[in-house]
């Protein structure tokens, strides 16, 4: 199972994401922002960081990168894509997911181990979790407030597209405590906290994050 991890100028978490893919039993493939060749991957991770320095808006310039042109086209045909943090911002800017991520309501950059509840577990990226399972993974963002108009929020809730919700505290002002969402078919998932930083007990607060990557490997094996 080949899972591509994109490196943009300013990506920070591409190596951790690639490591998480390998620990989950997948083969990680490095993809470069300036190259529209997806190298035959079965799925793609858009990692966290500050692509293009977050200039203009987070993810606004990344969406026009050659690699994104290919990913946007293929995602529409069912290629699984996981966007973490900056990757979530890129997915929203690319209109692959609805809504947008805005400046944290308290203006501070936040870095903490965050408890979230998994709410949709039939997606390509969350099938290794139990519905209602509570996990702890790192959260680190300055512009992680999820916003959308009420009609969009109602649709997300009504169709069960909220995949994870913040517990204990709402760390960034996200509407309805939304930490992550998916498209209706469950192939595209955006998530603000970082599962790739919680895959080994030596370095993470837990190994709860590994499930996102195991899920994709499960889904890809199952589809063959």
């Amino acid at each position: 199972m080949k899972i591509g991890v994109v490196t943009f100028p300013g990506s920070l978490d591409d190596r951790d994401a690639a490591r998480a893919v390998r620990l989950a039993g997948g083969e990680s493939v490095s993809l470069w922002h300036g190259d529209d060749d997806l190298k035959g991957v079965d799925a793609v991770v858009l990692p966290g960081g500050f692509s293009y320095g977050d200039y203009l808006r987070c993810g606004a310039i990344a969406k026009f990168a050659p690699v994104m042109t290919s990913i946007i086209a293929r995602a529409g045909e069912g290629l699984p894509v996981l966007g973490i943090c900056n990757g979530f911002q890129i997915l929203c800017e690319s209109h692959l997911l609805p809504g947008a991520l805005t400046r944290n309501d308290h203006l501070h950059f936040i870095c903490r181990d965050q408890r979230v509840r998994m709410e949709r577990t039939d997606t390509t990226w969350t099938n290794a979790y139990a519905e209602g399972e509570e996990i702890v993974i790192p959260l680190k963002n300055g512009e992680g407030g999820y916003v959308a108009d009420d009609a969009t929020l109602d649709r997300l809730e009504g169709e069960g597209l909220v995949i994870a919700r913040y517990l204990d505290v709402n760390p960034n002002g996200s509407l309805r405590d939304i930490a992550g969402i998916s498209n209706p078919s469950g192939t595209i998932v955006g998530l603000m906290p970082h599962p790739e930083h919680a895959v080994e007990s030596l370095t993470g607060p837990s190994t709860d994050g590994l499930g996102f990557f195991v899920s994709a490997v499960n889904a890809l094996v199952g589809s063959r």
Partner: peptide, 14 residues
């Protein structure tokens, strides 16, 4: 400009 219904924490800080 941010749409009126979108919270503007920077403006609020100013």
């Amino acid at each position: 400009m941010l749409k009126p219904e979108i919270l503007d924490p920077q403006g609020r800080a100013v």
